[in-house]
Computed example of a mutant assay.
Amino acid sequence: MKKLWVTVSVFILLFAIGCGKEQNDQTGESGVPDREIVISGKKWTEQYILPHILGKYIESKTDYQVEVKEGLGPTPILTQALKDGDIDIYVDYTGTGLLTVLKGNLKPEDTKETVYERVKTEYKKQYNLVWTQPLGFNNTNAITLRKERATELGVETASDLATISDQLTFGADPPFFEREDGYKSLVKTYGFKFKDTMDLDTNIKYAALNEKKVDVINAFTTDGFLPRFDLKVVKDDQNLFPPYYAAPIVRQETLDQFPELEKTLNELADKIDENTMAKLNARVDIDRESPDKVAEEFLKEAGLIQ
């Protein structure tokens, strides 16, 4: 009996040592995990900037270390990388989460708040992933024209524009004309009857608008060319386009390991509006500044870091 007790005691001691070693492998003497938080994003301008904003803010406000892996890929790849633990955080958009990942539908009564709550609830339930609070901006589809032209025509909303659309030429990138939720939905919802339409590559459609070769183009609400060319985004008064509010998504296991992380990310809630994000995008797209530099200067100018 004594021999059995000694054997059990040794087993318990070895188990405790093993657990302690596993804990020490993850956490340094200060209690701070000794691995980096990995942040990534998609392969376009805004998604190059946002990981650096998150990373620099986290490192400024906590003792955590961050690694930014730029441009990992589109939503399906990033979502899988989160599930697999290859990355810890990336920023996605509420409409993308609902329509692309969850394969849900936008309901007529949906608001930006209800869409956010739906994706937040389902991601936690299905994937154990956490949507933290939105950063503030809505990067959704939009219709835009030159401000002076909008003033001349008395246009504030898409419905206003529809009444005079037979006098105007509309330009858009080819995918917008092909998608069911693009030009076809725009015509169905608002009754647009443009006198002419033009396929325009994304890289030249803003120049075509600025040079008055077209009157109206499609856009995204945080495109960098909007503030640079002084363009007006007309109000989507029939709520055709889903809300695409940007928010960091984090693995629950990461939040458990880094207890200050969720609170820190939520401090960035509502700190970036559409105009601000568009200006940051313009600095990278047009001025050719680095996303890293633009992110750091934004945080300092906003008083978010020293």
Rank of each mutant, 00 (worst) to 15 (best):
residue 5 W to E: 13
residue 5 W to S: 13
residue 6 V to Y: 10
residue 9 S to Q: 12
residue 13 L to I: 05
residue 14 L to N: 00
residue 17 I to C: 03
residue 18 G to C: 05
residue 19 C to S: 13
residue 20 G to R: 03
residue 21 K to D: 11
residue 21 K to C: 11
residue 26 Q to H: 06
residue 28 G to H: 07
residue 29 E to C: 03
residue 30 S to R: 08
residue 35 R to Y: 00
residue 39 I to N: 00
residue 41 G to M: 01
residue 42 K to T: 06
residue 43 K to A: 03
residue 45 T to D: 00
residue 45 T to N: 02
residue 46 E to W: 02
residue 47 Q to D: 09
residue 48 Y to E: 13
residue 48 Y to S: 15
residue 49 I to T: 02
residue 50 L to Q: 03
residue 51 P to T: 02
residue 53 I to R: 01
residue 54 L to W: 01
residue 54 L to T: 01
residue 55 G to S: 00
residue 58 I to M: 11
residue 59 E to G: 02
residue 61 K to C: 01
residue 66 V to Q: 01
residue 72 L to A: 05
residue 73 G to D: 08
residue 75 T to S: 14
residue 76 P to W: 02
residue 82 L to N: 02
residue 84 D to Q: 05
residue 85 G to W: 02
residue 87 I to A: 02
residue 94 T to C: 08
residue 95 G to K: 03
residue 104 G to E: 04
residue 106 L to N: 04
residue 106 L to G: 04
residue 110 D to Y: 01
residue 111 T to V: 10
residue 115 V to T: 09
residue 117 E to Q: 12
residue 119 V to K: 06
residue 120 K to W: 06
residue 122 E to Y: 03
residue 124 K to T: 15
residue 126 Q to G: 06
residue 133 Q to E: 14
residue 138 N to E: 10
residue 145 L to D: 04
residue 155 V to H: 00
residue 165 S to M: 01
residue 166 D to C: 11
residue 168 L to R: 08
residue 168 L to Q: 10
residue 169 T to D: 07
residue 174 P to Y: 06
residue 178 E to F: 05
residue 181 D to A: 11
residue 182 G to C: 04
residue 183 Y to V: 08
residue 184 K to R: 11
residue 187 V to L: 07
residue 190 Y to V: 00
residue 191 G to K: 09
residue 192 F to E: 00
residue 195 K to Q: 13
residue 196 D to I: 04
residue 198 M to S: 15
residue 198 M to R: 15
residue 200 L to C: 02
residue 208 A to M: 15
residue 208 A to C: 15
residue 209 L to D: 02
residue 211 E to L: 05
residue 212 K to F: 15
residue 212 K to L: 14
residue 213 K to T: 12
residue 217 I to G: 03
residue 219 A to R: 10
residue 223 D to K: 11
residue 224 G to Q: 08
residue 224 G to C: 00
residue 225 F to V: 11
residue 225 F to N: 12
residue 227 P to M: 03
residue 229 F to P: 15
residue 235 K to N: 15
residue 236 D to N: 08
residue 240 L to P: 06
residue 245 Y to P: 11
residue 247 A to L: 07
residue 247 A to K: 04
residue 249 I to L: 10
residue 252 Q to H: 04
residue 252 Q to I: 03
residue 256 D to N: 14
residue 257 Q to M: 13
residue 257 Q to G: 14
residue 259 P to W: 04
residue 259 P to Q: 04
residue 260 E to M: 12
residue 270 D to Q: 12
residue 271 K to I: 08
residue 272 I to L: 13
residue 273 D to T: 09
residue 276 T to W: 09
residue 286 I to Q: 15
residue 287 D to L: 09
residue 294 V to D: 01
residue 295 A to N: 12
residue 298 F to Q: 00
residue 300 K to Q: 10
residue 305 I to H: 14
